[in-house]
Amino acid sequence: MTDTPVEEMSFEQAMAELEKVVGQLERGDVPLEDSITLYERGATLKKRCEQKLKEAEEKVAAITLDGDGNPTGTKPVEGL
């Protein structure tokens, strides 16, 4: 596991660590207490990935296109 707090991780960092956590849990060779800790870490990482994806989707949705289909900039997304 990395020392970077989950809330500061990029999508790529969180996804890479989540994949490691899932791999450890799937192997099944982790003691029960460690499995619980890993599961909790995985849930936190999953939430971070979902948050970063939502942010990206909102940015993409805010891009406006001109008549030729070229981006003209972004417009504010409601609620941000």
Rank of each mutant, 00 (worst) to 15 (best):
M1V: 06
T2I: 07
T2P: 08
D3L: 12
T4L: 15
P5G: 13
V6E: 02
V6Q: 05
E7P: 04
E7T: 11
E8A: 12
E8R: 15
E8L: 15
M9I: 01
M9L: 00
M9A: 01
S10I: 06
S10C: 09
S10M: 08
F11S: 05
F11Q: 14
E12D: 06
E12M: 00
Q13D: 08
A14S: 14
M15D: 14
M15A: 14
M15Y: 11
A16T: 09
A16R: 07
E17R: 00
E17I: 01
L18C: 00
L18E: 04
L18Q: 04
E19R: 05
E19P: 00
E19G: 01
K20F: 00
K20W: 00
V21Q: 03
V22F: 02
G23L: 02
G23C: 04
G23D: 09
L25D: 01
L25R: 01
E26R: 10
R27T: 08
G28W: 06
V30W: 05
P31T: 10
P31M: 12
L32R: 11
L32A: 11
E33Q: 07
E33F: 06
I36W: 07
I36S: 07
T37G: 05
T37I: 12
T37H: 11
L38R: 03
Y39S: 14
Y39I: 03
R41H: 10
R41P: 05
R41D: 04
G42M: 02
G42W: 00
G42I: 00
A43Y: 05
A43T: 13
A43S: 11
T44I: 10
L45K: 00
K46T: 15
K47A: 13
K47N: 07
K47F: 05
C49S: 04
C49N: 02
C49V: 08
C49I: 03
C49M: 10
Q51L: 05
K52L: 15
L53F: 02
K54P: 00
K54A: 14
E55G: 07
E55H: 08
A56E: 13
E57A: 15
E57H: 09
E57P: 03
E57R: 13
E58S: 04
K59Q: 13
V60N: 07
V60G: 02
A61Y: 04
A61H: 08
T64N: 06
T64G: 05
L65I: 10
L65P: 05
L65N: 08
D66Q: 10
G67V: 09
G67R: 14
D68G: 14
D68K: 12
G69M: 13
N70C: 04
N70K: 13
P71N: 13
P71G: 11
G73E: 06
T74M: 15
K75A: 15
K75I: 14
K75Q: 15
P76A: 07
V77S: 14
V77Q: 15
V77C: 08
E78F: 03
G79A: 10
G79R: 07
L80Q: 12
